[in-house]
Simulated scan of single mutants.
Amino acid sequence: MSANEPLSHDQLDALIVRLRLGVDASELHGSLCGYLAGGASSNGGKLLAALELEGVEDVAPSPADQATLDALLRQCREALADPDLGFEPLLPDGDRPLDERAEAVVDWCRGFLGGFGLAGTGPHAKLSDDAQEVLRDFGTVAASSFDFGDSAEDEDALIEVQEFLRVGALLLYTESAGRGQSGSDRLH
Rank of each mutant, 00 (worst) to 15 (best):
S144R: 04
A177N: 03
H188C: 10
A50M: 13
P97C: 02
Y173I: 04
E155C: 05
V17E: 12
L21I: 02
A67D: 15
G122R: 11
A125N: 07
L73E: 15
L85R: 12
G94E: 10
I16M: 11
A142Y: 08
A79N: 11
H9N: 10
A79L: 13
H9D: 10
P61H: 03
D137V: 11
G34V: 04
W108P: 00
T174E: 06
A71E: 15
T68E: 08
R186I: 03
E88W: 06
L113M: 11
L165G: 00
A25L: 08
D156A: 15
R77G: 09
R136C: 03
D129F: 12
E52F: 05
D70M: 15
A64I: 14
L48T: 04
G111S: 09
L127A: 13
A177G: 03
A152K: 11
D137R: 13
L36N: 10
D95K: 05
H124Y: 07
Q75T: 08
G139A: 02
S128H: 11
P89A: 12
E88Q: 12
R179D: 08
P6C: 01
L127T: 08
L127V: 09
D154I: 04
V161S: 04
S144T: 08
T140D: 14
I16V: 10
A49C: 03
F116A: 01
K46M: 13
S128L: 11
G30L: 03
D65V: 07
G94A: 12
N4Q: 15
G149I: 00
C109G: 08
D82P: 00
G39Q: 01
G120P: 08
S151K: 07
A37S: 15
D129R: 15
E103I: 00
E153G: 07
Q75P: 05
R186P: 01
E155M: 08
